[in-house]
Design a protein around this nucleic acid. Structure first.
Lengths: 336, 336
DNA sequence: TTGTAAGCGTTATCAA
DNA sequence: TTGATAACGCTTACAA
């Protein structure tokens, strides 16, 4: 590796001159020397050493991203958006998977600090909001919370999709199609986002003047298999349900499978709506009607907020609630 | 941030002593002082600064991962495996998406070097093997090539799935089911892996004493839409085809859709086999029979090879060709 | 217009 | 047993 020292001695100037020129910060350097420096740098294929630079500037141009699991099809879009945006703004991204495990979150938070990342985008585990506040309050570096809302501390910028409105969209659409008994496969009772969606479901059902029985609600964990279990259970509790909304697509996919297993058809016998609009939802049969989160935009926005924060630019507001959108495909039809 | 200096002055020893103790390299330090140092470090919540450490040790405990696109469902599994394994071995991972764009590959290679990563796992673009050799020969840091084979330079360790054998598995299975006219949706003609799979298709069809017409082969680009186009084209060229193998699952999914659009049934009219075993393949209808790549193992192995290389451990061999496996689901049946 | 020197937080060498 | 001190590659205040 060539260093500025090499260039300096080669050109016959001080390292200061070289440093200044290479950073476009020359106060007064002759054009001639400047060009000689630039040329020699190219010749020697000079690459600045970010470690050395970071040690003094306190900037590494690297951000950390903590998510539960890149294997969860909800995340690739977001991660891609974050990496794209970071790259565009001159940053790189260290990826960390926590499996929603608090210890791993703690571990990564520590490591990222040791590695001197300039900021962190954090998608917290679904549980124990309280412990998180504790955990995050210790972080000094810029931070943006993504997707999984953490209630409480308003000082940290947050980006998420308006789950309440999302369910409104879904329920209203089903009501238009004359459905009256609508089941709901919820996320975990402990999750903030899940609660939000559940609230949206309940309110919009009631606003439409329909019944809302607690036996129509099943608490799941966002996994495909759980969607299957949910349908078994819901249909057992009340065989007259004609539509089911799921708090995420994965469970909706499971639900559709189980409905078919029951010898029923989607959507003719039971209509299904998902949430997220992951890639898979386009390819199941029938294609899944779903409430889309603007994933790419979420990642992009989170990154912009983080980097603006890092670079001391103003942040207009802390809470960024993006609007979901209903994607109509083929898994919903009029009540039989 | 507390530094070893802080600890040293607090305890009343030299920074040397602190550094040694914290790194478990004490040659001769009294147990007493050692414990005092450790305790103070904990008290002050000391975290080592990797920039400073790296500057002198030439190690950052960070690796780079360059892939085309995390949004391609083939990659999340691999990326997860790499991150898991790296983390287990004390490393973190910087993720880079290149979109198979040579300029971006070059850019990231440079950046990763500047950031002083200890090594790089690289999944190259499908094209221009030649330019790559040029590109990679300049890299001095440890390197492992993943998935997309780069022919030529044998000095760089490679990890990939035996595509030839994969197609053998698929074709033989179709032959067992009495299929005689088997279409093939290939990857791009320029891609090394695609060529390998195509060769496997051709050889095994011939070995089974069947015909292999070039009109049964369609060259695609691994995308869903291309699978649709491929079926249109193939069925147009020869309506008697009773089975189709696709060089990846995404195109197989597209193929299945288009077959249905044609008013034909999968598998009763046309059987379909994919390649990769991405998550989606389980959820399409019928569930896709496919040739699985051991994705997790590939990521794990690549990471082990890289880190062993970094840490100067012996690498037994350079080429690591993993065996594919046929996953039988519901998209293949006996010829009608 | 240019150079000297201090300092960032570590590790490593050698002397005490 | 322990501690000065140099060094890593860079930026930056200040001096010339």
């Amino acid at each position: 590796m060539t260093t500025i020292k090499d260039i300096a001695s080669r050109v016959g100037v001080s390292i200061t001159a070289v440093s200044q020129v290479l950073n476009n910060k020359e106060v007064g350097i002759k054009k001639e020397t400047k060009e000689k420096i630039l040329e020699t740098a190219r010749e020697l294929d000079y690459k600045p050493n970010y470690l050395a630079r970071g040690l003094i500037t306190k900037r590494t141009k690297t951000i950390g991203l903590i998510i539960p699991d890149i294997t969860n099809p909800f995340f690739p879009q977001i991660v891609r958006a974050i990496e794209d945006t970071a790259n565009k703004m001159g940053y790189n991204m260290i990826l960390c998977n926590t499996d929603d495990n608090l210890d791993k979150e703690q571990l990564y938070l520590d490591i990222l600090k040791e590695k001197c990342v300039d900021g962190i985008i954090f998608t917290s585990s679904t549980e124990s909001t309280l412990k998180h506040e504790d955990l995050l309050s210790k972080i000094k570096s810029p931070l943006v919370l993504l997707d999984r809302g953490i209630t409480g501390d308003i000082r940290i910028p947050k980006v998420y999709t308006h789950g309440y409105n999302g369910l409104l969209l879904g329920v209203n659409y089903l009501v238009e199609k004359d459905h009256k008994k609508i089941g709901f496969i919820s996320g975990p009772e402990t999750s903030v986002t899940a609660k939000e969606r559940l609230k949206g479901y309940r309110s919009s059902v009631e606003e439409n003047g329909l019944e809302t029985k607690s036996e129509w609600i099943y608490y799941g964990d966002y996994k495909v298999e759980t969607g299957e279990k949910a349908v078994k259970e819901l249909l057992n509790r009340d065989p007259e349900i004609t539509a089911i909304i799921s708090a995420n697509d994965l469970m909706a996919v499971g639900a559709m499978r189980e409905i078919k297993n029951h010898g029923l058809r989607v959507p003719e016998d039971i209509s299904v709506i998902g949430f997220d609009n992951i890639q898979i939802s386009r390819f199941v049969d029938p294609a899944l009607t779903t409430i889309a989160q603007p994933s790419y935009r979420m990642g992009e926005l989170a990154t912009e907020l983080l980097i603006n924060q890092i670079e001391d630019k103003e942040i207009p507001k802390k809470e960024h609630e993006l609007e979901p959108k209903l994607i109509v495909r083929d898994s919903v039809t009029f009540r039989r």
